[in-house]
Design a protein around this nucleic acid. Sequence first.
DNA 1: CTATGTGAATTTATTCACAGCA
DNA 2: TGCTGTGAATAAATTCACATAG
Lengths: 207, 207
Amino acid sequence: MRYHRIPNETVHRLPIYLRGLLRLSEQGRQSVSSRAFADLVNVNPWQIRKDFSYFGDFGTRGVGYSIDKLEKHIRKILRLDVVNKTALVGVGNLGSAVLAYPGFKTYGFYITAAFDSDPEKIGNTIEGIEIEDVSKICTLRERDVHLAIVAVPGSAAQQIADALVGAGVKGILNFSPVHVIVPKKVKVITIEIAMDLARLPYYMPAS
Amino acid sequence: MRYHRIPNETVHRLPIYLRGLLRLSEQGRQSVSSRAFADLVNVNPWQIRKDFSYFGDFGTRGVGYSIDKLEKHIRKILRLDVVNKTALVGVGNLGSAVLAYPGFKTYGFYITAAFDSDPEKIGNTIEGIEIEDVSKICTLRERDVHLAIVAVPGSAAQQIADALVGAGVKGILNFSPVHVIVPKKVKVITIEIAMDLARLPYYMPAS
DNA sequence: CTATGTGAATTTATTCACAGCA
DNA sequence: TGCTGTGAATAAATTCACATAG
């Protein structure tokens, strides 16, 4: 099964695995069995084995999987093996939280630019990043930034997305509660907090 | 196919449908065809028809679906047909963004309590909600709050989750980047921003 | 004897195609 | 004729069971 496309659901689990591997690596572990890893990441052992089998030979029978090899390979598959410069647009409460969030570095993301439209904020430095006017988004191309996080109000989101696409951005993580339309060569992932919350009561036991 | 369990993936799409219906409702529309709705919510028409067919008879052949009936019914399925009082724990940047976010009301969620451990913040009022000490979480039971949003650092998340469970909370929306362990009668949905971002380069076209 | 790796079986979800009602 | 509603076909993902390697 060496040459096989990786199912979408597996790709979805890859960052979860990566985080688990990182934790084991910090503990100085060299290898881990599918059983032990299952407990850590909350996925069945057979699911883990099948997922890993889609992209190669990282296990040793009787021993387990090489943490280091696996980590490197998952990073490569997800294209997290290079530094990904990322821009942030919208430095309100949510944007500030994103700037302060240390979790991005784990995956090789570095926020190297921040934009806002509020003249009060422009020129300020937050978390070591100077806030620029949104009209400067067009400079992202020459700054080699291909990823952006959008944390602006819904009413501004499409316009910002257009500017980002115009500046050569290839991937957008969208926090605004609107479906932004982009050319299909650009990938958008929208996070809708309210929708995740909306699913919660369905899965809650009867009160 | 009238009496059929609703597939998980359909439940997942329900909040998306609900938002679309709400938008149509605001425009004063009475009914919508699966084709027109498909464009709005970005799901195939046949998928929409199949999904709707799992829970009843809301369409009229030749015309379309009754927006009002459908909205009410989806709300009922998701148990969004009642006011869901919600607590927020952690009023940092992210927590403040959550408090200010208007999208929750759409789905019947009202944040009626906010907690933090910072003495500087306790007693302050933000967005009309007084910030209380985290030690007061135990009062949630008598205040009839069964839902909570956790926006605290990872190191504090498990402890906060324990307190919430102790106070009778049945559902937790977790923003902290750790897997919290709760009794299985409690449902936790964890949002991991960094993981969503981590999936983006995989889906981006080669730079 | 332990733990991987993988075909085969099963379950779940999507897509199709069209009968049937307004 | 237009659009829903749904069985049947297809596709995708999960689970199982076991041969195989260390």
